[in-house]
Design a protein around this nucleic acid. Structure first.
Lengths: 225, 225
DNA sequence: ACCTGAACACCGTTCAAGT
DNA sequence: ACCTGAACACCGTTCAAGT
């Protein structure tokens, strides 16, 4: 009733809250209007249109990133950056869908992160296009990993439903015994620890791969430094 | 006028054609209806609903993958698999958005690919959960890379517009000289070759990283085999 | 079995009109 | 300057009714 005046930040905050709670599909101008106790089109004055609002929400997400530069080695710094980014995408699981739906999303906080990532790669010893490729490799892996986590988001049903589902899958995967074996092994493991372990394995592999590139670039003579 | 009877495959084919041509947002039940010279809701009998249709279209995409097992080494086979998957995602750029919007997508052709990926990783020497992590690492990287390519899809405007846009960006990136430098360097390069080079760099890094894991796992005594 | 027409509840966006 | 109400052109989906 005695609702405060709207402003851009309040609209963005409400959008982020709605996105976190119910996902990208739940964000509509009318739902946002009711949340803000305003008409459905009140937001247009503040954020232009919906696509722009999603962009602003995404940018607000990236503002959460703590970009530290005090790691002991480039490897530590790059790992910390990757983990920060991954944390962002798990806290706001709508981010991958938002980027996919609106590829033009950009903003100062996103730019800030990109610059940080490039800086860390530069300190590691990458130059020229290799700098871009190294940054893109890290970014791609983290995005792809977050994208994979979003694929299995529904432990709504407890173990009872799971075993029934497992039976159904068992008949579907009859031609692929290896896949069935891995599927059951993963189904019996704790999802949270599985996700972390999967990410850390990939991250470690990526860092080893980048390390190999740097070693080769600086001459393979002293690989033990 | 003398339109053939509808069937599930024709609906899927029309959906894929529409998706390829105009993207995920363009796929609506009514547009599909006009393409098929049928009513907007004719598809419901054949494919259930829209989400299911997108799943079927995705599955149809994965059917295109040629999964070869005749590589000389596990590294060749895994690289070939990754490149096949990347090709699929570049030919059908709506795939990342489709997966993001409907995380529950699955199907026999997708399962077939997953099994192939696991097989290749198994032949490489991975076992147990490492098998899953290795596969997930490759998959995540390829998805993330495809996702990145989709971010810069609009060379609609030729070089004239690009230079004007470059000026605008130059003021935005004034706080980030490193990012500005890399941005201009990339803007002056051929986008297609850039995309390929970026992917190949990341792929090579990933394979080196997996290689390092296998070496360590089998004992670091014989790294030259 | 397969398809249509009409209907329902929703959407993003615009724009005159209000304060 | 900021916001509302009504309107427009779209959605996905359902369902009785047709053949």
């Amino acid at each position: 009733m005695a609702t405060e005046r709207l402003d851009r930040q309040r609209v963005i905050n409400a959008a982020v809250a709605l996105l976190d709670a119910e996902g990208l599909d739940a964000l509509s101008t009318r739902r946002l209007g009711t949340v803000l106790e305003a008409s459905a089109n009140a937001m247009y004055w503040h954020v232009g249109n919906k696509e722009n609002l999603v962009g602003l929400a995404t940018n607000a997400g990236f503002a959460e990133l703590e970009l530290r530069t005090d790691g002991e080695s480039w490897r530590d710094r790059l790992a910390a950056t990757a983990r920060e980014l991954r944390g962002l995408f798990t806290r706001h699981s709508w981010l991958t869908a938002a980027f996919s739906a609106h590829p033009r999303i950009h903003g100062p906080e996103i730019v800030r992160f990109q610059n940080h990532l490039l800086q860390v790669c530069q300190q590691a010893g990458f130059e020229g296009f290799d700098l871009d490729w190294a940054g893109a490799t890290v970014f791609s892996f983290v995005i792809g990993d977050a994208w994979g986590q979003a694929q299995s988001p529904t432990p709504d049903d407890s173990s009872a439903m799971t075993t029934e589902l497992l039976e159904r899958v068992k008949t579907e995967l009859t031609d692929y015994p290896l896949l069935l074996e891995r599927y059951t092994a993963l189904a019996n493991a704790d999802p949270a620890t599985v996700d972390v372990a999967s990410f850390e394995f990939g991250l470690c592999s990526m860092l080893d791969g980048l390390q190999a590139h740097l070693d080769h670039q600086n001459g393979t003579t002293s690989p033990n430094t």
